[in-house]
Amino acid sequence: MSEKLRKLAEKVEARFGDTLTRLPSLSFELSYEVPAGKLREVCVALRDEEDFRFEQLMDLCGVDFLTYGRDEWVTEDATDTGFSRGVARELPKSEPNYDRRFAVVYHLMSITHNWRLRLKTFCGAGEPPMVPTVTDIWNSANWFEREAFDMFGILFEGHPDMRRILTDYGFVGYPFRKDFPISGHVEVRYDPEKGRVVYQPVTIEPRTLVPRVIRRDHRYMDRMLTQADNIAPEALQTSREKSGNA
């Protein structure tokens, strides 16, 4: 980790203490988890305090961790019957109390100090997932939050104009959720009898050409451990267990 980033990490940890949890990251990045309740307080401090000066929110996006770490093809056991190209497409059930399914990720940048910081906040259990807005802190968040709402159904509490932004007028569902099929639910076609374009249920089924494969490649085994150099391996382990993909 570079000297500069180490300095930033020290400052952040000294200022916010236990509010932020350090997340494993590559050596040239810094990433923290912030509880949704403290988000706004932390953001205002990060923007205004001389030590941080994160004037810009470069990016804000939602992430759905429903199928994180799930593959479609067994790679670790051998088989004596041969492989099948068939891929079972069963989604894990989303448990109602599972509070680490949706996350919102903030990428901050400071022009004064020339450094970047990533904040991650989990939305908590329940539907719809909710986090407070940061639109009044960084105005650039306005459309980014609308996009996250449109794609993931994450509600931003206090957003001035929470409408869909990218999907079609009258669209139903949240397309970037992992349980939304790639082919969607409806398709359009021209109906010559009615003389207009109509919606109908999709007639195609999604298929997989290349199955999703996770391999434990020894070359990468300890990459994250060594590069995030001031996180002890045990801390990383617990953070993985917490996010449900140990």
Binding site: M58, D59, C61, V63, D64, Y68, G69, D71, V105, H107, V210, R212, V213, I214, R215, R216, D217, Y220, N245
Partner: peptide
């Protein structure tokens, strides 16, 4: 122009956000 890439160790990205 930024790419936020989340990988869970698979041969496909888990999530890509295009900034």
């Amino acid at each position: 122009f930024g790419i936020y890439l989340v990988s869970d160790g698979a041969n496909k990205p888990y999530r890509i956000k295009i900034r």
